[in-house]
Design a protein around this nucleic acid. Structure first.
Length: 511
RNA sequence: CGAGGUGUAGCGCAGUCUGGUUAGCGCGCAACGUUCGGGACGUUGAGGUCGAAGGUUCGAAUCCUUUCACCUCGACCA
C-alpha cells in the first residue's frame, strides 16, 4: 500500500491530487488557480503534442501562432461568444508600473482599449482570416496553434480545470457548409482515434445538446470519456461554427460564381485536461499508471545488492540487460554522457525520445521500486544476485502489478517493443471493459435518477429540450453528455416528456 | 459573490481559550553507522521575520483592530 496516496474507494478527489503529487506531475503556483507543470508532467504533454501534431499534419493542417491578447471589442462581435466568455475573462487594462509613496508597484497608464487574455482564439483568428481570405482559391484554410489560454474559473483542479491551461486550437475556413461540417467530424474522429490508440482511453463520439454547445457554434461535437469514479469527462471538442464568426469578422471570399460570400468555419481543441483524464482512466491506489506510448520512460532497471562484490556483479549484469534492450551503442553513449549521474537515461528510440533508466542511486531497492511505481513507469526490471546467477530477471508490469521471471537470452529490442504493445492494448481493453460495463440503459426518469446514483453513463431515449435538461440538471446534477453518433435507427419515447424521438443520449455527472 | 473554516520549518500538525524561560512534535532533508528481493533503524545536524500591518502590555504565536491568502460547501464552470 502506498503510504502517501489515499485509496480511491476512500476519497477519490484526494486520491487524484495525491497521485499527481506523488508522481511529481504538477504543483500549485503562487498564482491563484494556475498550476506549475513539472518535468514528469510536461513530458506527458509533449508526448501528446507530438502524436497529435503528427495526425494534424497528416490531414493537411499547418501550425501558426496568434497573439495572447485580444482587444475587448473583438469579443463583442459575436453575441453568444461574449455571453459565454465575459464572466471568465482576465482583462489587461494598464501598461507600465510605477512606485507609490510606500514603494509598492502600481499600474500606471490605462490602455485606450483593454485586452482580454485569450480564453480561446476564434475572434482574433477570425479577424486575421478576414485579411487573408479573398477568393475560393484561398480556401480551405487549415490552421492549428499550440498555445496557452486563460479562463478565470471560480474553482480549479489540477489539469482538469485551471485558470491557465495549455491546448491546441484548430481553426479552419471553408467554401461550403458541407466541407466545414466534414472537417469538424474528421477532427473529432482524429481525437477519438488518438484517445484510443495513444492514451488507451475509450471515448464516446457524439453531439452536444444546445445547452452544452460552444458559445457561437452552430453545433458542437465532443468525445466523452468515463472516469473510474463514474463521472464523465469531456476530453475534446470540435465545433461547426457555421457562418457565425465569418459574419462577425467579415471573412468573405469571391466564390466560383463570382459572388461575394461568407466562409464556413470550424474550430477544435484538446487541452492539458487530457492528462487529468489519463490519470483517472488508468491509475490505481499505488499511484500513476502510464500507457507505454505516453510514458517518456518505458522501464527502470533497479539493481539489488548488499556487498560491494554483489554490487559490481549486479551492475555489470544490468548493463548487459540494458544492451539487450537498447543496443550496445546507445548504452555506451549514455554511460559516457551521463557519467557520475545517479540515474542514467538510455534512449530506446531517438525518434520518439523514449528511454529506459538505470537507477544507480544509493539506497534501498525497495525505495526505488516505489519511486518508479508511483511515477507510472510501465516496466521495472529488478535484478539481484540470484538473477545474475540464473541469467534471468524479475519483470514487474505496472498496469496490472504482475510479476514474471524472464531470461536475459530472450531479451532484445523487438521483445521489448512487443511487451510495450501488449500492455498498451491490455490497458485499452481494461478501460474499455470498465466503460462498457458502466453504460446503463434505462426507460424512465425514475430509473435514470436511480441509475445515476451508481455513476457511469446512463443511456435513454431523450427528446432534446433545453428547459427539460435544465430541470433534470437541477434535480439530479446530471447533464446530457452527448447524443452519440451511433444510434440504432429505432424510435422511442423520451423518458421525461414521452415525446417521440429517434435519439438515445448519455446522461452522466461530469467533471 | 453567499456561508463556514484555516494560516506556526519543505509537508502535516500541537501550542492560542487562561499573555510569561531559548516556540515544540511527526514526516521529509543532510552526515555517519548498521541494514538492503516491497516503504528498516540508531546517532548527530540543518531548517522559523508564528500570513501581513497597526494597537494594548514590562512582556504577544496567544488579547484587540484592519487586511491578505488559501481550503470546504453553495452559486459558476464553452
Amino acid at each position: 500500500m502506498a503510504k502517501n496516496i489515499v485509496a480511491r474507494a476512500k476519497d477519490y478527489p484526494q486520491w487524484y491530487l495525491d497521485v499527481i503529487k506523488a508522481a511529481e506531475l504538477a504543483d500549485y503556483s503562487p498564482v491563484r488557480g494556475c498550476m506549475v507543470i513539472r518535468p514528469h508532467g510536461y513530458a506527458l504533454w509533449e508526448a501528446i503534442q507530438k502524436d497529435l501534431d503528427r495526425r494534424f499534419r497528416a490531414t493537411g493542417h499547418v501550425n501558426a501562432y496568434f497573439p495572447l491578447l485580444i482587444p475587448v471589442s473583438f469579443l463583442e462581435k459575436e453575441a453568444q461568444h461574449v455571453d459565454g466568455f465575459a464572466m471568465e475573462s482576465a482583462v489587461v487594462t494598464h501598461s507600465s508600473l510605477r512606485k507609490d509613496e510606500n514603494g509598492r508597484l502600481i499600474p500606471q497608464s490605462e490602455l485606450a482599449e483593454p485586452f482580454v487574455v485569450r480564453p480561446t482564439s476564434e475572434t482574433i483568428i477570425g479577424y486575421m482570416y478576414s485579411q487573408w481570405i479573398h477568393s475560393y482559391r484561398d480556401l480551405p484554410v487549415l490552421m492549428n496553434q499550440w498555445a496557452n489560454v486563460m479562463r478565470w474559473e471560480m474553482r480549479t483542479r489540477l489539469f482538469l480545470r485551471t485558470s491557465e491551461f495549455l491546448w491546441q486550437e484548430g481553426h479552419t475556413a471553408h467554401e461550403t457548409a458541407e466541407e466545414a461540417e466534414a472537417e469538424t467530424v474528421k477532427m473529432l474522429n482524429i481525437y477519438a482515434d488518438f484517445a484510443h490508440e495513444f492514451l488507451a482511453m475509450p471515448v464516446v463520439k457524439g453531439r452536444k445538446t444546445e445547452s452544452e454547445r460552444f458559445p457561437g457554434a452552430v453545433h458542437t461535437y465532443a468525445i466523452e470519456a468515463l472516469m473510474q469514479d463514474g463521472k464523465a469527462l469531456q476530453a475534446g471538442t470540435s465545433h461547426f461554427l457555421g457562418q457565425n464568426f465569418a459574419k462577425a469578422f467579415d471573412i468573405k471570399f469571391m466564390d466560383r460564381e463570382n459572388q461575394l460570400r461568407h466562409c464556413w468555419t470550424s474550430s477544435w481543441g484538446v487541452s492539458t485536461r487530457l492528462i487529468g483524464g489519463l490519470i483517472m482512466t488508468h491509475s490505481d491506489d499505488e499511484g500513476l499508471v502510464l500507457p507505454p506510448k505516453v510514458s517518456s520512460i518505458l522501464a527502470a532497471i533497479v539493481p539489488i545488492y548488499r556487498s560491494e562484490e554483489e554490487k559490481s556483479k549486479v551492475l555489470a549484469y544490468c548493463k548487459r540487460l540494458a544492451v539487450a534492450l537498447c543496443g550496445e551503442k546507445r548504452v555506451e553513449e549514455a554511460l559516457e554522457r551521463e557519467k557520475g549521474r545517479e540515474i542514467i537515461s538510455i534512449f530506446v528510440d531517438e525518434h520518439a525520445m523514449q528511454k529506459i533508466v538505470f537507477d544507480l542511486r544509493e539506497g534501498r531497492a525497495v525505495e526505488k521500486h516505489f519511486h518508479w511505481e508511483q511515477r507510472g513507469i510501465p516496466f521495472r526490471f529488478e535484478v539481484g544476485p540470484r538473477d545474475v546467477d540464473s541469467e534471468g530477471f524479475v519483470l514487474k508490469v505496472r498496469f496490472d502489478n504482475s510479476k514474471c521471471f524472464g531470461k536475459l537470452a530472450e531479451v532484445n529490442s523487438q521483445w521489448f517493443a512487443d511487451k510495450c504493445a501488449e500492455v498498451q492494448e491490455a490497458m485499452y481493453q481494461k478501460a474499455l471493459q470498465y466503460r462498457d460495463s458502466h453504460i446503463i440503459d434505462v426507460n424512465s426518469y425514475e430509473e435514470l435518477k436511480e441509475a445515476l446514483k451508481s455513476g457511469g453513463f446512463v443511456r435513454c431515449w431523450f427528446k432534446e429540450d433545453t428547459e427539460v435538461e435544465a430541470k433534470i440538471k437541477e434535480e439530479t446534477k446530471a447533464v446530457v453528455r452527448c447524443v452519440p453518433f451511433e444510434q440504432s435507427g429505432e424510435v422511442g419515447k423520451c423518458i421525461y416528456t414521452g415525446r417521440e424521438t429517434s435519439e438515445k443520449v448519455l446522461f452522466a455527472l461530469a467533471y
